[in-house]
Simulated scan of single mutants.
Amino acid sequence: MVVPAGGSLGTWNWKRIVSNMFPLLVVLSIIVLWAGITLEGAEEMLEEFAVLAVMVPTMVDMGGNLGAILSSRLSTRFHLGTTELDPRDRELWADVAAILALAATIFTALAIGAAAIDVIVFGGVIGFGTLLLISLVSGMSVAVIAIVFSFAATYGSYRLGIDPDDTTIPIVTNVVDVFGMVIFIGVSALVLGF
């Protein structure tokens, strides 16, 4: 187990937390601007297919939440000393499978809700099949990215001697938000031929 020079991973020290997090949060804030720029660039498509704009917050938020769930589980296992991120660890694969199953459920429900809103509010501009395709392809792609960044952020923090509880959630949620927005806009544009 790698332990920071000043103590154990479980030691709470606000100076260490601030010194680790402040530069990280500045960099992550700049990265998140990319998502805003991507959204701005898709304004015409979102105006024409307004139901997509309704899907954006859920799409972006759920990807980060999935990553946060996995990061929390991994951080807890590191703190308890029950994992070394061995690819033969069946519990790790069970966690990954659970995240993917949860993603499939959430993004299917998103498509169903969006289709209902599309019919009721917008007169059925996009069909359910198209919304389901956009939601599942985008959502499952975001889930895979959330899994990769959860493992990378948790293991990287652990190896650097930084408490993963301090770093993983901000890293994973911000990075997945950006990728979620880019992927959702890209998949939507591709499927709708925009």
Rank of each mutant, 00 (worst) to 15 (best):
S71N: 09
I126Q: 00
S75D: 11
T58V: 15
S138D: 04
G193C: 05
T38A: 15
T82P: 08
F128I: 00
F128D: 00
D177I: 04
I145L: 15
S135Y: 00
Y155T: 11
V182T: 08
M59G: 00
M1V: 07
I162G: 15
D61A: 13
T82R: 11
S157P: 00
G64E: 02
L52G: 08
G36F: 13
V27K: 15
V142H: 11
S29D: 04
A189H: 05
T167F: 06
T38G: 14
V187F: 02
F128P: 01
M62W: 13
E40L: 15
S19I: 02
V54C: 04
I37E: 10
I120G: 05
T76R: 11
F151M: 12
D86V: 02
L24Y: 09
T83R: 05
R16Q: 00
D86N: 11
G124H: 11
A97W: 15
I145W: 10
S19G: 03
I171R: 07
L24D: 02
P23G: 01
A189K: 08
T38Q: 13
R90A: 09
V96D: 04
T154F: 08
M140L: 14
V144R: 13
A109P: 01
M181K: 09
P23R: 03
I106T: 01
I17Y: 12
P4C: 03
F107E: 03
Y158Q: 09
V175N: 04
T168S: 12
A101L: 14
L24S: 03
I183Y: 02
N20L: 11
I183E: 07
G124R: 12
V2Y: 12
G186E: 05
G36T: 01
A94T: 06
I99E: 08
V96T: 06
G10N: 15
A5L: 09
W14H: 02
L102N: 10
I99H: 13
F107Y: 14
L66D: 03
W34D: 11
D177R: 07
A115E: 03
D163I: 08
L33E: 11
I185D: 00
A35F: 04
L192A: 01
I162L: 11
A98Q: 07
L70P: 00
P23H: 00
